[in-house]
């Protein structure tokens, strides 16, 4: 239970940090920020790698989780990069 309390602490602080960091984002960047944040949510990939694979069902679940998280990660970062490259001042 102590683990959860400590990690819950990390969770609350990180959310607060996130709110502070991004509260004044210019509207030009709304889409790239959303798409970039979306790529970050692919961090579930790390979670998927940590899954135990003791049974066939679990192996299948881990494989699928890794695959879909990877689509999220690679697709998300590449699309964001493509988009940001278009933004320029003349």
């Amino acid at each position: 239970m102590e683990d959860y309390i400590l990690l819950g602490f990390v969770l609350i602080l990180s959310i607060y940090l996130g709110l502070e960091l991004i509260s004044k984002v210019p509207s030009t960047l709304h889409t790239p920020l959303m798409s970039g944040a979306n790529a970050i949510s692919g961090i579930a990939l790390v979670g998927a790698l940590l899954l135990s694979v003791d049974s066939q069902l679990q192996t299948a679940l881990a494989f699928l989780a890794v695959t879909f998280a990877s689509i999220n990660v690679f697709g998300g970062y590449l699309v964001t990069n493509r988009m940001l490259k278009m933004f320029k001042k003349k």
Binding site: V10, L17, G18, S41, I43
Partner: peptide, 10 residues
């Protein structure tokens, strides 16, 4: 937790 929370906040 950290990365997920950042996305949640943004």
């Amino acid at each position: 937790i950290v990365a997920g929370s950042l996305v949640g906040a943004s």
